[in-house]
Amino acid sequence: MTPALKRIALGVLGAVVSLGACAGPKGFKDSWMTMGDFGPNWREGVANYSLTARDAVGAASIYMRSDDEAKTRQLTEATYTRLLGRWNLPNAQANVWFIGGLGSVTGNDFAGSKAMASPGIQVDYETTRVYASVFGRLYRAGALNHDFLSARAGFSFYEVDYDQIQPWLVVEARRMRSLSDKTEVTPMLRLIHNRYFVELGVNNFRQARLNFMYIF
């Protein structure tokens, strides 16, 4: 695989991972959730509808560009999110999620499209002051065949009332097997409100990232 393709794959997986590794990749029953992830080389939009308290269906669209800006990819997929397990403790919550997608990818350097499947599992634990998650996802589309793992950990500076904004510092570390020998590390400022969720960060490659979630 050429270095350019590796960078593209890195960008794709980075976009997918940053949205998947959140506190909750779906809203409450009968709600719509929208999520966005924006960076210099990728733009991703996701919308899903929660059919039940545990299941959501939706769609995602990802535009990405290689670091040299020569190659682009456009991914479109139908998504399914399932809460596999939840433990509601007195002062904490732990979850296991399945996040999967089926769709197609096109590129400016190959004709037609390739079928894509992207099943993943996320495990997370949080309190009002601490957050931790691990997310693993396969990304398979013809010759594109990647596995990756990301881990997030963070803490909130202080507790707030329900209707106030709570700031967090969250750090994500991500590594992809057979794609790159580098570990991408992104410290982020996370702002949680009862109506919106925003993350802003800069990774160790000096790339800015913006992530948001909104439920309506």
């Binding site: 506190a23 909750g24 809203g27 409450f28 029953k29 709600s31 939840r86 433990w87 509601n88 403790l89 002062n91 904490a92 919550q93 949080e126 309190t127 009002t128 707030v160 329900y162 209707d163 709570q166 949680i192 409100h193 009862n194 109506r195 919106y196 969720f197 979630m213 439920i215």
Partner: peptide, 10 residues
């Protein structure tokens, strides 16, 4: 389990 305001809005 109620530890996140964004999640508890439901």
């Amino acid at each position: 389990g109620m530890v996140c305001a964004f999640c508890a809005q439901g």
